[in-house]
Design a protein around this nucleic acid. Structure first.
Length: 530
DNA sequence: TCCGGGTTGGAGCC
DNA sequence: GGCTCCAACCCGGA
């Protein structure tokens, strides 16, 4: 049996390749997970508690495509439906079909580790051999950590220093797979339509411009790599987050997330392009650098207990984030009154994808920039709605953007007004995703509350009625956030609670008293005074 | 203990 | 578009 979970592809699929070499009959299985798919009527948008309909749609398209590709090779996808736990369904099929060898791609996410452990325990007890190759990432996270003296690398550079060159992908193409075995009494489902999954009326839901599946992934990759100069000059931080008709990146992330595209194959193809150009950019900003970032976050997340939480997470700054359901919901639903922020959140809701820097803008705004709301709240929204949502990368970037880990320059705050304006002064991106602002003149489109009433009337958009007033004043809110971050950092300093050391840092209360003192401005380094 | 480096800030200047 | 300054963070290596 080949058990598909991620890795929804035929190319560079070591689990599938090992299975076809090792058996006369192969059962390619995918189990629909009710924990992932069960409709949640209380969710803020159609879908399950874990996934919005855009990502469910992408998954179903990917399964459909995988099934067609397997059928072309004389096989097919055997789709099972778990009643509750996926591992139970796999174990039942292993037993009922009398399987001798089980192959699946290794998955390092906590949910997957628990699920897979149940299956491997059952297999061991039943005398079933298990093969679980690493092929979702360039490297094996466990191996990287071991090479680093059993310490998890916590900076990109230290990760690069030990990573080296990734293994080559499997490139052998084959025209036939062993046929499927006897499935006995099992009812074989075809891939369901989204409409059949019980998400209610989804006819009004926007269909994202990205279609799931390996076929689409390979096509998209080839199109991206065709422009060799673009590939060679790619610098991630220089991309335009407001570009939506033709995004500034490859938008291969959803395909990498589901494994429709092999990261090793993609890396290999980029290297091919580099060989044909005189010069090319390098990590961290280059295209290969992006794949290495992905592996970096997979490695750190694997080596860090409670990576997806602030509490109990050793690498995460403990910050007293503020509770505000009202502000949180305004952010989540694209009603902050800052058009740049709201347009991005609406793009997320509709497309399940936004440019990386757009994600930065809204993540900074929610956390350390303006609202001072917990990054875990934002993480949950992204995790549910993004079609490329990936546990390691999503959590890693929320830690980054909230200045909780990896990145600490909390005084660098994205302006919800000027950051978008420098890429898109006319506000076309905003006009596209927020129709209410379509006729707002460009000089007011990023700050519509400053438009005179006559202008608002002419644009048929009254602020406070047709489009919300800003929920906070950015200048004041960001100043307050900076102060709060400074206090939180002071409390996090290891020497903060140790009275023995002479150079102890001031805790937040002491610091406040110190800074309120009349002549505090004379010393630039209060923490050094003893 | 010091110093250089850190994928992606903003504002003002040329 | 690129430079500098702003105010100042943490980490890793020496």
């Amino acid at each position: 049996m080949v058990w598909f979970r991620k890795g929804l592809r035929v190319h560079d699929n070591p689990a599938l390749d090992l299975a076809r070499r090792g058996a006369a009959r192969v059962y390619p299985v995918f189990v629909l997970d009710p924990r992932y798919l069960r409709p949640d009527p209380d969710a803020p948008s159609p879908g399950s508690a874990r996934a919005g309909v855009a990502r469910v749609r992408f998954l179903l398209e990917s399964l459909d495509d995988l099934d067609s590709r397997l059928r072309r090779l004389g096989s097919r996808l055997l789709l099972l439906r778990a009643r509750d736990d996926v591992s139970d369904a796999v174990c039942a099929a292993l037993k009922d079909w009398n399987i001798g060898k089980l192959y699946f791609e290794s998955d390092t996410e906590p949910y997957a580790l628990t699920r897979d452990m149940r299956v491997t325990d059952f297999a061991a007890a039943s005398g079933i051999e298990v093969f679980s190759p690493v092929s979702h990432t360039l490297f094996d996270p466990a191996e990287i950590i071991e090479k680093n003296g059993c310490r998890t690398p916590l900076t990109y550079q230290s990760f690069l220093n030990i990573a080296g060159e990734p293994p080559a992908p499997l490139t052998e193409e084959y025209s036939v797979l062993p046929p499927i075995g006897d499935t006995g009494e099992y009812e074989l489902f075809s891939v369901p339509k989204l409409e059949e999954l019980g998400y209610g009326d989804i006819s009004q839901e926007h269909v994202p411009p990205f279609r799931g599946g390996e076929t689409e992934a390979l096509k998209r990759m080839r199109e991206s790599l065709q422009d060799k100069e673009w590939v060679a000059k790619f610098e991630k931080p220089k991309g335009d987050p407001s570009a939506f008709l033709k995004p500034a990146t490859t938008v291969l992330s959803p395909y990498l997330k589901f494994g429709c595209l092999s990261s090793r194959y993609f890396y290999h193809c980029i290297q091919d392009v580099y060989r044909s150009t005189k010069t090319h950019t390098k990590p961290p900003v280059s295209l290969t650098g992006q794949l290495l970032w992905r592996d970096f976050f997979y490695t750190v997340s694997f080596g860090t207990p409670n990576f997806d939480h602030m509490k109990g997470n050793k690498i995460c700054k403990q910050i007293p984030w503020r509770e505000s359901e009202e502000l949180f919901v305004a952010w989540r639903d694209g009603r902050t009154g800052y058009p740049w922020i709201d347009a991005i959140m609406i793009q997320l809701r509709k497309w399940g994808w936004m440019h990386h820097l757009a994600r930065h803008s809204v993540a900074c705004f929610l956390t350390r920039g303006d609202l001072f709301i917990h990054w875990e709240k934002g993480r949950d929204v992204f995790e549910r709605l993004l079609i490329d949502s990936d546990w390691a990368i999503n959590n890693g970037n929320w830690l980054w953007l909230s200045c909780s880990s990896f990145f600490y320059q909390y005084h660098r705050i994205y302006s919800p007004i000027s950051f978008g304006k420098k890429y898109d002064p006319n506000g076309d991106y905003i006009r596209h995703f927020i129709p209410a602002l379509k006729h707002m003149p460009k000089q007011y489109i990023y700050e519509p509350w400053t438009a005179p009433l006559s202008v608002q009337e002419k644009a048929r958009c009254i602020i406070g009625k047709d489009y919300p007033k800003p929920v906070v004043d950015h200048a004041a809110a960001s100043k307050e956030c900076r102060d709060r971050m400074g206090e939180a950092y002071a409390s996090n300093r290891p020497s903060g609670g140790d009275p023995v050391k002479g150079n102890k840092a001031l805790n937040s209360r002491q610091r406040k008293i110190y800074e309120d003192a009349p002549d505090s401005s004379k010393s630039k380094h209060p923490k050094k005074s003893s």
